[in-house]
Design a protein around this nucleic acid. Structure first.
Lengths: 163, 163
DNA sequence: GTCTTGTGTCGCTAAATTTTCGGTTTAGAT
DNA sequence: ATCTAAACCGAAAATTTAGCGACACAAGAC
């Protein structure tokens, strides 16, 4: 199976930036015909390189003004199962990572106000049997929050496409 | 200016899940004609409620197998400016948050290997004049990493759309 | 060297989707 | 009751995507 070449990377970079970039435009950028771009994008989807296309919704427009990182810890390993079940069904939790260090998990959470965060911590997180302690950091601002993966800048094929 | 009603929320939820959902399908879900959906989506874009549409690229497909959270700290407030400039231009940094607590900033970083992470810490972060200390947590797994915002489940208008 | 096979590309056409636009309905204000 | 503005609708037009057969090229078999 073919691997990801420079052309794919350029396409990925553009689609990562704008998931609705027309194939004609992608084709111009990489020097391929529209149908070839279509073929490549289809394969990138089939291979799972492109996991999906999602609209980025403004948190502030939804009044989700509070962004917090919550560390969660417990002693009994049996706690994990119930915790993860809770995490999966709780929409306020945007991310959940199993991390190294003194804590078990790190959550990324968005809520309306500090009151909602308080309710989240007490009613959702601490409500999981076995969860003993949490530590919460509030994000005051987020200078960068793209989530875009680094794709090596196209060099080689850009030249070819140029002529 | 109109605010975000239940129909908008349903549309946002669907587009957040699949940014290429056809307007015909959105229309069926909310009980509106295709042209009306188009109108709403256009306005959601203009109002900045939809900030963009992005393809989600698989980190593992790009061999970006290491996800780390890096806390960064300094004493001299003048350090911040150079730090933020560095952050903006460093593609390995997916997110950067100004957080409360003992640290100044929290970074979310993806690299290829631990070696690359080491290079990142030494060559990029610590290279910023004034940066005194860092603490790094490795993500062993990420049970949830959607980034999707919670949109209250549609109730009222779903009934109308049903008939 | 020649043949075969597989992959990638291309132009073209058909299908699907998006966009636009005039007309209609709805809701609120006067 | 009448007016106005906003939202909605259906249908046509424009754009984009999907699918197909042909062709070029490279790798491997013989």
């Amino acid at each position: 199976m073919s691997d990801i070449d420079d052309i794919d990377r350029t396409i990925l970079a553009l689609l990562q930036e704008n998931g609705r970039t027309p194939y004609a435009e992608l084709g111009k950028a990489v020097g391929l015909a529209v149908s070839s771009v279509n073929e490549r994008v289809k394969k990138l989807n089939e291979r799972g390189v492109i996991e999906g296309v999602h609209a980025a919704v403004s948190a502030s427009a939804l009044r989700l003004d509070l962004l917090a990182f919550v560390f969660v810890g417990w002693n009994d390993p049996a706690t994990e199962e119930q915790f993860l079940a809770r995490v999966a069904s709780e929409p306020a939790i945007l991310e959940c990572h199993h991390v190294t260090g003194t804590w078990n998990y790190l959550l990324k959470v968005r809520t309306h106000t500090t009151r909602d965060l308080e309710a989240f911590l007490g009613g959702i997180v601490k409500a999981v049997p076995g969860v003993l302690r949490t530590e919460t950091l509030i994000a005051l601002s987020s200078p960068k929050e793209t989530g875009h993966l680094p794709l090596v800048p196209p060099t080689e094929h850009a030249r070819k496409a140029g002529r």
